[in-house]
């Protein structure tokens, strides 16, 4: 359990893989850490805009 209302269960163990189930109230956001990190990485890429290309495109 995490807090009073987030429950983590092992759904399946297969070889070296473990499948986890997370049950949480609908107001709790659940996503994998790598998803969050990938989005942060994409945001950092977005901050380096190729301004010349963008200007060309708008014409």
């Amino acid at each position: 359990m995490i807090g009073d209302n987030v429950e983590i269960t092992v759904v399946e163990v297969k070889g070296d893989q473990v499948k986890l189930g997370i049950s949480a109230p609908k107001e709790v956001s659940v996503y994998r850490r790598e998803v969050y990190l990938a989005i942060g990485e994409e945001n950092r890429e977005a901050a380096k805009i190729n301004l010349a290309a963008l200007k060309m495109l708008k014409k």
Binding site: I39, E42, N43, A46, N50, L51, A53, L57
Partner: peptide
């Protein structure tokens, strides 16, 4: 958010 990389043909946006 739009990503405009050096190779601008790979311009993309984050729908997720």
């Amino acid at each position: 958010i739009v990503v405009v990389p050096e190779d601008f043909k790979k311009m993309r946006t984050n729908l997720q």
